[in-house]
């Protein structure tokens, strides 16, 4: 099963804060520990550890890209059908009503980088759009002096779907950075903000998230699924500052 680690799990690992990182339960570790504690493997690092019940939240099954889901705070589809069928009698009409209550899970091929707070350059190696490329030889870096002593609030803004204002659903953020000593400017602390308009207002979702010193793809879960048109990653501290 997939779990989201909470702040309380951080004490188990001296490398950094585990809050928000996703982990998978490990059957073997589960057997060896008292029933209330759970063995997990952290997705970002492959480290296994045993966590107390208050140090994680259970996550639902991953939703495939593009799959339509009812809004997070909506009643279940079964419930909506049961309530509306005696009122409108037409299944087609209920399907139509339900279509307004559904959003697709984000599909990465539809995501675009709209803009960034600044950029060190805008070329083949360095641009906000490069953060959507699988090529590890490209990156985005904020402008020189944008982050004095490695502390600031630099951001990259993404639109989740091609149509302006169209919303999608997501719960996980994944990020790749170069490992030290190659990545002293890599983000170490960041958070997620969402909006339905590129100009905001942006609403912060979830706590500060911390990267580990690994060049693997790292993964965090937000506290709940998020439904929005735009996502902004706000980077507040680099590896050198930590």
């Amino acid at each position: 099963a997939l779990v989201r680690l909470r702040g309380a799990a951080s004490a188990h690992n001296a490398q950094g804060r585990l809050e928000g990182h996703t982990a998978e339960t490990v059957a073997g570790a589960l057997d060896r520990t008292p029933s209330e504690r759970v063995g997990v493997r952290v997705v970002s690092t492959d480290a296994t550890m045993v966590v107390e019940p208050h140090a994680f939240d259970m996550l639902g099954a991953r939703v495939p890209p593009g799959e339509m889901r009812l809004l997070h705070r909506c009643a279940s589809e079964r419930f909506v059908r049961r309530v509306f069928l005696p009122l409108v009698h037409h299944v087609e009409l209920i399907d139509h009503i339900l279509s307004f209550l559904k959003l697709p899970q984000v599909t990465m091929s539809e995501v675009t980088a709209v803009k960034a707070s600044s950029s060190a350059a805008n070329d083949r190696q360095c641009s906000a759009a490069n953060t959507l490329s699988a090529d590890d030889g490209t990156w985005w870096l904020s402008a020189p002096d944008s982050c004095p002593n490695g502390v600031g609030a630099e951001w990259v803004l993404y639109r989740l779907r091609p149509a302006v204002g169209a919303r999608a659903r997501f719960q996980y953020v994944q990020m790749k950075i170069p490992k030290l000593p190659y990545g002293p400017l890599s983000v170490r602390v960041f958070h997620v903000e969402v909006a339905d308009d590129e100009s905001g207002p942006f609403v912060r979702v979830g706590p500060d998230l911390t990267t580990f010193n690994t060049d693997r793809m790292q993964e965090w879960a937000l506290p709940t699924p998020v439904e929005c048109a735009c996502v902004r990653l706000v980077l507040t501290k680099n590896a050198a500052a930590c």
Binding site: R62, P65, Q105, V106, M108, V111, A120, C126, N130, T131, L132, S133, A134, D136, T138, W139, W140, L141, S142, A143, P144, D145, S146, C147, P148, N149, G150, G152, E154, V156, Y158, L160, F170, Q171, Y172, V173, Q174, M175, K176, I177, P178, P184, L185, S186, V187, M217, V231, L233, L235, K237, N238, A240, A241
Partner: peptide, 14 residues
Amino acid sequence: SEASCIGFLRVGFA
């Protein structure tokens, strides 16, 4: 100074 910018290689949402 050298440590005055911040960045990353790649991002994903799921």
